[in-house]
C-alpha cells in the first residue's frame, strides 16, 4: 500500500540526527544501536499495549473466520467456506451497495459544506470561535444520541413530515422515512453529512490558515482577483488536505455501524444492512462467529482496496 501521500514519506533531511541509514542489511554502528534502543524504550509501552489488545484480537478473529466456531468448544475447520458463502449471500451484496451508497451520499456533502463554511469563516474576524464551536457540536455528540435525534425528527409522525407535508404541502403524504430502503439510506446519509461537516470544516480551516500570507499577497499584487486566488492559489494548496479527508471519511463511511444499528437495525427485510450491522447480526443473533469474522475481513479488504485507489488517483492528480 502506498501511504506516502498521507504522511509517511521520509523526511528529506535524514531522520535521527546523523546521516540517513544506508540500504541493505542492518549493521548498526554503536550510535545507531543506541538510537534503536532509545526508540525501543519510547515504543515499547504503546507497542505492547497495541499488540496485546488490538493486533492479537485481530489475528484471533481472522483465525476464527476459517472455522465453524462453537462458542463452548468443538469448533471444526471450515476452510474458505465462510468466504465462499459471503460471495453467494445476497444480503452481502445489498450491504455492499448500501455501504457504497452511504459513502457516496455522505462523503462529498461533508467535504463540500465543510469547505464552504471554512472559507466563510476564514474571511471573517469576529465571532470565529463562536461559529466554529456551533458547527462542531454535532461532531462531538455521540452517535447514539444523534441517531436517536434523527430517528425522532424523521419519525413518520415527526417534525420533518409535519414541515414537508402539513405545513408546506411539499410532499403529498407522510413518508415512512426509516421503514423503506431508499429514504432510510437518505436520512442516515443526511445524518452522516450533518455530523461530519464540522470535522471537515475544521480541517479546511486549519489548512487555510496554514497558507502563508505572502503567497496570497504575491498573487494579489500580480493582479489576481478573489476568485482566482481561491481557485488558482488556495485550492491547489489544499489538495493534500482534500485527499486526507476523502480517504479518512471513506474509511469512516465503510465502518458505519451505530447509526444503522439504532435507526433501522438493518431492516426491513435486510434492505438497509451495511457490513457491520449484518456482521453483528450473524455474530450475536445467530452466534455464527466464523461467518461474522469473514464478513469483517472482507470489509477490511474492500476498504484497503478503495483507499489504495483513492491515494493513487490523488497522487497522480497532484503531481501533474
Amino acid at each position: 500500500m502506498s501511504v506516502d501521500g498521507v504522511a509517511t514519506h521520509a523526511h528529506p533531511s535524514a531522520p535521527g540526527f546523523p546521516a540517513g541509514r544506508r540500504p541493505g542489511p542492518w549493521h548498526p554502528s554503536r550510535q545507531e544501536r543506541q538510537e534503536a534502543l532509545a526508540a525501543l524504550a519510547f515504543l515499547l509501552p504503546g507497542l505492547i499495549w497495541f499488540l496485546l489488545w488490538t493486533a492479537y484480537p485481530l489475528l484471533k478473529s481472522f483465525w476464527m473466520s476459517f472455522f465453524h466456531w462453537q462458542i463452548l468448544g468443538g469448533s471444526t475447520f471450515a476452510g474458505l467456506a465462510h468466504y465462499a458463502r459471503a460471495f453467494a449471500d445476497p444480503v452481502i451484496r445489498t450491504a455492499l451497495e448500501n455501504t457504497l451508497l452511504y459513502a457516496v451520499l455522505s462523503v462529498p456533502g461533508q467535504i463540500l459544506f465543510g469547505f464552504l463554511v471554512a472559507a466563510l469563516l476564514d474571511s471573517i474576524t469576529k465571532g470565529k470561535v463562536f461559529f466554529r464551536v456551533l458547527y462542531y457540536i454535532p461532531v462531538i455528540s455521540s452517535w447514539v444520541v444523534v441517531s436517536l435525534i434523527f430517528m425522532y425528527l424523521f419519525h413518520s409522525e415527526g417534525l420533518m413530515n409535519y414541515v414537508l407535508v402539513d405545513l408546506t404541502h411539499f410532499l403529498p403524504r407522510h413518508v415512512p422515512w426509516l421503514s423503506q430502503r431508499g429514504t432510510a439510506l437518505l436520512v442516515i446519509a443526511l445524518l452522516g453529512t450533518w455530523k461530519g461537516i464540522g470535522w471537515s470544516m475544521l480541517l479546511f480551516l486549519a489548512a487555510l490558515q496554514g497558507i502563508p500570507s505572502e503567497v496570497v499577497e504575491a498573487a494579489s499584487t500580480d493582479g489576481a482577483g478573489g476568485w482566482q486566488i481561491a481557485t488558482r492559489v488556495k485550492l491547489p494548496l489544499l489538495r493534500p488536505m482534500l485527499m486526507f479527508q476523502v480517504v479518512m471519511l471513506t474509511i469512516g463511511a465503510f465502518q458505519a455501524f451505530i447509526q444503522f444499528y439504532i435507526m433501522t437495525g438493518g431492516g426491513p427485510m435486510n434492505q438497509t444492512q451495511v457490513f457491520l450491522t449484518y456482521m453483528y447480526k450473524q455474530a450475536f443473533d445467530f452466534y455464527d462467529f466464523g461467518y461474522a469474522s469473514a464478513i469483517s475481513f472482507l470489509l477490511a479488504a474492500v476498504i484497503l482496496a478503495i483507499s489504495v485507489v483513492q491515494m493513487r488517483f490523488f497522487r497522480q492528480d497532484y503531481e501533474y
Binding site: T8, T54, L58, S61, L276, S296, F297, L299
Partner: peptide, 26 residues
Amino acid sequence: LRFPGKNAVFMLYLITMMIPSTVMIL
C-alpha cells in the same frame, strides 16, 4: 528516531485503522 522495522510497524498501524473494531469484541 531510526530503528529497524519502523516502516513495517507503522504500516501495521495504518492497516488496523481499516479493520472494524467490532470484530475484535469476542
